[in-house]
Amino acid sequence: MIKRILFLLVLIFLISQFLRPTKNEASYDSIATFEAATIVSAEVKTILQNQCYDCHSNVTRYPWYMEVSPISHWMAYHIKEGKEHFNVSEWESYTDKQKNHKLEEFVEEIEKKAMPLESYTWMHGKLPDSDAEKLINWAKQTSDAITKGKEEPQEKVTDSLPVKVSDSTVVDSI
């Protein structure tokens, strides 16, 4: 009986290797758009690339163990969940209010040390406190810039030359 159960488990494991989840592989352009819009420094960019983008963008760097089921399904679930909460690749689709809310949650999760997930840190290491502080400062500055842009709309630049009223007469069409 135990041999049959073991055989069945091995068979299920082997079959599951052929049933892979869809990979999260898109163009890096969406991330570049986010980085340009939020004015990310090189230092913060590196932290985001190493700690955040794999689960919070449409671009994931897959480690070797992602090729093994059921780990691949478990990680695909985490990536899907991460993107539902905050997806930098969708940054341009958020309203200013949503952007500020996402950044507030971003800061809150880092301050609570809830991000990155503990399961992520097993292989990638914990987020050092100094890096966490840099991310928090960047997120707060970005949020302030969004709020400031909302409260103080940029003035339209108009031509400063005076308008000359001509003495021409309008002729009715014939």
Rank of each mutant, 00 (worst) to 15 (best):
I5Q: 11
F7Y: 06
F7G: 02
L8T: 15
L8F: 15
L9D: 09
L11R: 07
S16M: 12
S16N: 11
Q17H: 06
R20S: 03
P21L: 04
A26N: 08
A26T: 07
S27A: 06
D29A: 08
D29H: 06
S30I: 07
S30P: 00
S30A: 15
T33R: 14
T33M: 02
F34Q: 04
F34P: 00
E35D: 05
A36T: 14
T38C: 07
V40G: 02
E43P: 00
V44T: 08
K45V: 03
I47H: 10
Q49T: 04
Y53H: 10
C55D: 11
N58H: 13
V59F: 05
V59P: 00
E67W: 12
S69P: 02
S72R: 03
S72C: 13
S72I: 05
S72H: 06
H73D: 05
M75Y: 11
M75L: 12
Y77S: 10
I79D: 03
E81T: 12
G82W: 01
E84T: 08
H85D: 08
N87T: 07
N87M: 04
S93P: 03
T95D: 02
D96V: 00
H101A: 12
L103G: 05
E104T: 10
E105P: 01
E105M: 13
V107M: 06
I110D: 04
P116S: 09
Y120C: 09
H124N: 15
H124W: 03
H124D: 10
L127C: 10
E133A: 15
L135P: 11
N137V: 03
N137S: 14
A139W: 03
T142R: 01
T142G: 13
I146P: 00
T147Q: 08
G149N: 14
E151V: 09
P153V: 07
E155I: 09
E155P: 03
T158V: 15
S160T: 06
V163E: 14
V170N: 06
S173L: 14
I174W: 08
I174L: 12
